[in-house]
Design a protein around this nucleic acid. Structure first.
Lengths: 343, 343
DNA sequence: CTGAAAGCGCTTACAG
DNA sequence: CTGAAAGCGCTTACAG
């Protein structure tokens, strides 16, 4: 591997000069600059990242802490982050905590997870990343970020308990409100809800959005609400209890998986989604367009959440003087497909 | 950040001694060792990664080059890699090439992609990773790895043209053979095939496996074969042409997406998969269990491919003397669901 | 505009 | 068993 020193020798200048050129300092004559740049190009010289990092304590890398890479939201967010990093020449170092794989769907009830996050942060501090993005597996208030952290950190897909830490989420409440209004616009007045787990923040925000839409449309909440636990089976069970003999003409499921469970129930009853009863989902998972009929759902802007997170962390790294912690919200879209019909 | 030097001062020993203890050298008395370890623990000292890397030119990190993180196979493979790295205290640095996003589904016909891969390799060499894993987006013979590469590299999900580079893939041929035999075991003698694109290696290997099963079962190839391009629409079109008035009782689709297209066609014709005609898929994508009836398919062991790739690269890094390039094949499983019935 | 020198925090022969 | 010293490849005041 060719070094700065060798470049300097080849050009008969000092290593200081070469370093200055590499770092875009203006105090070098055009003539030497051109000559040195030429040699650098010819030799294919690339600066030693470690040496630069050690000396300047700036590594152009940020650590990504991922609750679980296999969670449906993770790859999209990371993709967004990396597309931004690529453009700005930053590298991402991955720490995949694998919480779902290790501890099942209820991992966040296991307080051990907080220690794992803290260890990951420590690890990244030790390897001297310039900043950290914590990509959460689901929305929640995160309280395990050390208070004395002296390195930029932003939370993606969740938010921090303490002030001073930026986060970027999607506008859950607004999207639920929009979807409910979409249902109402289609003539539905009694809309059942299959929510997620009761204490979950997604559930709370979506419920709030639903209520807002009902209220703003001068309707009354029909009270047909069931809490379920986000999976297909629980959606099926909830549908069974909720739709058996209600007068609801539509069901709003707080995720696509539970909507699939509703489909299972309707299928059994020989009822057709979008015709006999309208069904709306949330998440726009890939499977939602393979359901028959296709599922009307809320699209979560994962890529944009990632991009924004990357933008925010690089701003905090490179312009710390302008930094001010904020909670950012990215807007969702409504994907209209076949499962919602006119009433 | 506390340094080695400070630890040494606190313990009144030399930094050499502390370094030796940290690196598990045996030439230190138990007494000093215990004392120093105690202080290290108390202070929460963590070695500076950059300094260690610079001096020892060993970073305990490997670069992951990903064709496209959004490809369905990528997260599972990466998850497997990282689970192994976690156990062995290695870090992964991600380079997401985003080929599908940038250049569409035909990116590998665009020779520019090879340059991007080479740049990514160069970049990783420059930042001094200990090794590189190239996670391909689909199986193929990769010919753009520099010959004079003096850093371990293994290919995951594809293989290298030149000798000397290990790869780990899944046993595509065997799985296709197994699935075909599964169909035959269910009494099907005329099995149509909806293959992928003609020159694709997955297509070739799966076709080979299909033929092998036909031959070993003393059946004759019914000749009902259509090449399609892996997506749902092409599966639909192929089904239309292939199943219109053939005597085939089963269709083997070379991926789940095309199988979904077959479902679309059958749905139109009011035919039921698994009853009127059997359908088999390949990939075990999430959506395959949301199709109705659920799809019988081949499960690709993504996690295991990742684990194995990680194992192979660490072996090559840490025991270069034992290294011998090999092409590894991980076995797939058959997921039997509802879309294949008795004939 | 240019360069000599110190130093980032470690590891590694080497001497004792 | 212990430590002084060189050096990994850079950046950064500082002097000229």
């Amino acid at each position: 591997m060719i070094t700065l020193k060798e470049i300097a020798e080849k050009c008969s200048v000092s290593i200081t000069t070469v370093s200055n050129i590499l770092n875009g300092k203006s105090n070098v004559s055009e003539e030497t600059k051109a000559r040195v740049l030429q040699v650098i190009k010819e030799t294919g010289y690339r600066p030693n990242y470690m040496a630069r990092g050690l000396r300047a304590s700036k590594t152009n890398s940020v650590g990504l802490i991922i609750d679980d890479l296999m969670e449906f939201s993770s790859p999209g967010i990371i993709d967004g982050i990396m597309s931004y990093f690529d453009e700005h020449h930053y590298k991402a170092i991955l720490e995949n905590l694998r919480f779902y794989s290790k501890w099942g769907t209820k991992w966040y009830h296991n307080k051990g997870y907080e220690k794992a996050v803290q260890q990951a942060i420590e690890e990244f501090v030790s390897i001297k990343v310039d900043g950290i993005i914590y990509v959460a597996g689901h929305a929640r208030c995160i309280s395990c970020i050390p208070n004395n952290l002296n390195i930029p950190l932003v939370i993606s897909y969740a938010f921090a308990e303490q002030p001073g830490i930026s986060s970027v989420e999607f506008d859950d409440m607004k999207a639920a409100c929009d979807m409910t209004k979409n249902l109402i616009k289609n003539g539905h007045k009694k809309i059942a809800v299959i929510a997620g787990t009761k204490t979950n923040i997604h559930t709370q925000r979506r419920l709030e959005g639903y209520m807002k839409a009902i209220k703003e449309s001068n309707l009354e909440d029909c009270g047909h609400l069931k809490y379920a636990n986000w999976d297909r089976e629980s959606g099926y069970e909830a549908a069974k209890e909720l739709l058996a003999d209600s007068e609801c003409t539509a069901v709003f499921c707080f995720n696509d998986l539970m909507a699939a469970g509703v489909y299972d129930y309707l299928y059994e009853k020989k009822l057709i989604p979008g015709k006999d009863i309208s069904v709306a989902g949330y998440d726009n998972r890939t499977m939602s367009q393979y359901l028959k009929p296709t599922l009307t759902t809320v699209e979560i802007p994962l890529f944009d959440i990632g991009r924004k997170s990357a933008e925010v962390i690089l701003q905090q790294i490179n312009k710390p003087e302008d930094f001010e912690a904020q909670q950012y919200f990215v807007q969702c879209g409504i994907i209209e497909r076949e499962s919602v019909g006119k009433n």
